Computed example of a mutant assay.
Amino acid sequence: MSDTYGKSVTLTIFGESHGPAVGATVTGLAPGVPVDMEFMRGQMEKRRAKGKISTSRTEADAVRVLSGVYRGAATGTALTLVIENTNTRSGDYTKTEELLRPGHADYTAHMKYGGHQDARGGGHFSGRLTAPVVAAGSIFTKLLQTKGVAIATHLAQCAGIDDAPFSGDPARLKEQLDALNAADFAVLDPLRARAMTQAIEAAAAEGDSVGGILETVVLGLPAGLGEPFFGSVESTLAALLFSIPAVKGVEFGLGFGFAGLTGSRANDAFRMQGTRVVTATNHNGGVNGGISNGMPLVLRTVVKPTPSIYKVQQTVDFAAKRNATLQISGRHDPCILHRARVVQDSLVAFGLADLCGQHFGTAWQEGTAWNMD
Rank of each mutant, 00 (worst) to 15 (best):
L129C: 03
S56N: 08
A239R: 12
L191K: 11
A171P: 04
V316W: 14
T27V: 14
I161P: 07
G28H: 04
L100V: 15
T80D: 13
V298P: 01
G15E: 10
A49L: 13
R192A: 12
G28M: 10
V302K: 01
R341A: 14
L225V: 03
A324E: 10
S56Q: 11
G253Y: 03
N85G: 12
G212N: 01
A49M: 07
P305Y: 11
Q157I: 00
V287M: 09
L29W: 07
A156E: 15
G351K: 00
V233Y: 04
F258A: 15
N284G: 05
V250Y: 10
S232G: 15
M372E: 09
L129G: 00
D118K: 05
G123N: 11
L299G: 01
H124T: 10
H110G: 05
A49F: 15
Y5A: 12
H18M: 12
G257R: 02
T275F: 10
P132W: 04
Y107I: 02
K304T: 10
A195F: 04
A223H: 11
L297M: 08
R128F: 13
L79V: 04
C335P: 00
G224C: 15
G220C: 05
F360W: 12
N87S: 06
I83E: 03
F39A: 12
G212Y: 01
Q313V: 12
Y5S: 08
V278N: 03
G160N: 09
L214P: 01
V134F: 07
M40L: 13
Q365I: 06
A179P: 15
S8Q: 08
F318I: 07
G121C: 07
V134W: 15
Q358A: 14
V303E: 12
T88G: 05
G224H: 06
T75I: 15
G357N: 11
A238N: 05
L29S: 04
M272P: 05
R57Y: 11
R322N: 12
F242S: 06
G249D: 09
E234K: 00
T75C: 10
L99R: 05
A280Y: 00
A369W: 09
G231M: 08
Q145N: 13
M372S: 09
M295R: 01
A223L: 07
D345V: 04
G122A: 08
N282D: 14
D36T: 03
E16P: 08
A319W: 10
A223C: 10
T368C: 08
I336C: 14
T77H: 15
R41A: 13
G114W: 01
M44V: 07
D3T: 13
L225W: 03
G212W: 01
K50C: 11
L191M: 14
G115I: 02
M37A: 09
A105R: 02
G220W: 05
T108W: 09
R276M: 13
L261P: 02
I13E: 06
K52P: 10
Q344G: 02
L214N: 01
A238G: 12
D36R: 01
R276K: 12
D189M: 06
H154W: 08
S235A: 12
R120K: 13
K142I: 06
L237G: 03
G226A: 04
Q327D: 05
G357K: 00
S2V: 08
L66T: 00
G260R: 07
F140H: 02
G226D: 04
E251W: 03
I328G: 00
I151K: 00
E206A: 14
A324F: 06
L347A: 03
V187Y: 11
M44K: 00
A269W: 05
V303H: 02
Q344I: 05
